[in-house]
Write a protein that binds this DNA or RNA. Structure first.
Lengths: 232, 232
DNA sequence: CCTACCGATCGGTAGG
DNA sequence: CCTACCGATCGGTAGG
């Protein structure tokens, strides 16, 4: 009620009354982000074609025509959701891999990738990637190429890990197919896993890894001390 | 051009000129089926909300209002696609299991289930089940219950097989989670597998099984003749 | 970013 | 199953 437009450095912050959202230029990035987040949530739960631009505007507290001030079209908004989601996922995955020891075993690297992938699907920004996964067909061809490029960057680090596991004999599927099946199994969890349920993301990742790699023990196949012959 | 309405038993069949589709009562089942098949194909490729009832009518060679002679609403048409697809899948899966020897190993039963599942996804009626998989959110709550019942029937035979494999130690994931991950990996193939590509459905199924069960050899874990201890 | 609006398209229906 | 039609909603825009 009082102190409108008071996010200048001098204005004292009051505990009550959220700071007003100002329509000036400095705020535009935030309004755009609100549109993206609302659109991601709506696209994920109802599907691109079933959500109107009016729904998206209302979710951001705007009038019906206002999203078109920030985005050229509804289609551009969908593409932006996917693009921002993938850019975040790529950066986040790289950070996760950087946190793995340099001498880590391939199964530890796969564990990091799987655990991170679940974080992307069910973490705080968890609507963006499912939209990409399930609204692919709503993109134009050029938009698909643009997202496909980012997807290739995201999936690239999986291949050396799967190849190493294949050579060790812990993975009996051709690595390119293994990647498709594994990411499919993980992505499908969007359909049934509930983050607020009894199963933690850690436990979910562990169970998935057990399915692909067998027993999580350090020694493969529960063999006694007898060393495993490694193919040249 | 000639011989209109000549599918009475006396009329000789000509090689040229398809027999005309008659609008009389005997044909209604076929017209309904054509609507279902066209709707399934369109829903799969473009999504429920992005397909108009006019598109569906045109695919069956009808005028815009005519689908509503066969189905109460667009929503009822979607539900019918899923329901027919699931009823067919349940019957077909039962037949596939009936074709397995009574003393078959659990891994052979899983192979039959996986192979059959790919047949459902990529066989001649291959649009119906993907629509069910990817348009779940477009159903009303009552429709969801109706389809969920059929889905439970379809998935039921997977559990004893996975439990047996778990007890044998060939599956290291809790069977209910294994079922979700495995069906997810298979269902995701809808996004990337092309039946007209170089990889056959048999090879696809074999690669998937290798991922879940390890080496396809009869002896688990490449152990020598030494028998595996089976838990009581 | 809002107001006011446009042309197009949509699901569905009455009557035959 | 077709013809002709209705009310509602949609993506998008001009002007401020």
């Amino acid at each position: 009620m009082d102190a409108q437009g008071t996010d200048s450095p001098e204005a004292p912050r009051r505990a009550r009354g959220r700071p007003r959202k100002l329509p000036d230029a400095r705020d535009e990035g935030n309004r755009r982000r609100e549109l993206l987040r609302g659109a991601a949530r709506l696209f994920r739960s109802r599907g691109f074609a079933a959500v109107s631009t009016r729904d998206i505007a209302a979710a951001a507290g705007m009038q019906s025509g206002s999203p078109f001030y920030h985005f050229e079209s509804k289609s551009a908004l969908l593409h932006a959701v996917m693009h921002e989601g993938m850019e975040h996922a790529v950066r986040s995955q790289q950070a996760a891999l950087d946190g793995v020891r340099a001498d880590a075993l391939p199964q530890e690297r796969l564990a990091a990738l799987v655990r991170h992938h679940f974080e992307i699907l069910f973490g705080p920004e968890g609507d963006f990637i499912p939209v990409m996964l399930y609204e692919w067909r709503s993109l134009t061809q050029e938009q698909r190429h643009s997202i496909a490029r980012l997807k290739a960057v995201y999936e690239a680090p999986w291949m050396p890990v799967l190849q190493a596991l294949h050579q060790q004999g812990r993975l009996c599927t051709a690595p390119p197919l293994a990647r498709l099946f594994i990411l499919g199994a993980l992505n499908w969890a969007v359909q049934w896993y509930r983050p607020d349920g009894p199963l933690s993301l850690d436990a979910l990742a562990q169970q998935a890894l057990a399915l692909f790699l067998g027993p999580p023990a350090a020694e493969p196949f529960h063999l006694p001390a007898q060393p495993l012959e490694t193919p040249a």
